[in-house]
Amino acid sequence: MVRQPLTPEQIEAGRRLGALLRHARAERDLADVAHAAGISPETLRKIETGRLPSPGFGTIVCLGEALNVPMQDLAAIWRGNPHPLEAAS
Rank of each mutant, 00 (worst) to 15 (best):
A87I: 12
R22K: 06
L6W: 06
A87C: 01
E48L: 07
L20A: 05
A26Y: 04
P5A: 04
G14V: 01
G14R: 00
C62I: 00
A87L: 15
P70L: 08
R16S: 03
L21V: 10
L63E: 01
W78T: 13
H35Q: 15
G58I: 01
T59W: 12
G80L: 00
L30W: 09
P84Q: 00
G56C: 15
P70G: 10
I11E: 12
G50A: 02
K46V: 01
E27N: 11
H83R: 05
A37E: 13
R22Y: 09
S40W: 01
I60L: 14
E27H: 00
G56R: 14
A88H: 07
P70D: 00
A31H: 09
V33T: 00
H83C: 12
Q10I: 00
P82Q: 00
G64M: 01
E9Q: 14
P55I: 02
L63P: 00
V61I: 12
G50R: 02
K46Y: 04
L74R: 15
L74I: 10
E27P: 05
P5L: 04
P84W: 04
P8F: 00
N68L: 13
A88Q: 10
C62Y: 10
N68A: 13
I11A: 14
A31K: 01
G38T: 01
A19L: 11
R28I: 06
T59K: 09
Q72Y: 14
M71P: 06
P41L: 09
Q4G: 05
M71R: 11
P70N: 06
G58A: 04
Q4Y: 07
A88S: 08
V69H: 02
M1R: 12
T7Q: 12
I11Y: 01
Q72E: 11
G58C: 02
S40L: 00
A34K: 00
S89V: 14
I60H: 02
L21W: 15
L20H: 13
L74G: 02
T7N: 13
P55N: 09
P70H: 11
D32Y: 04
A24D: 13
L52H: 14
L44V: 06
G80Q: 12
A24F: 05
Q4E: 07
A88I: 08
Q10R: 10
I11N: 11
G14D: 04
G80Y: 12
M71W: 11
T7G: 02
V2L: 12
A88E: 05
E42G: 11
T59V: 15
V2A: 04
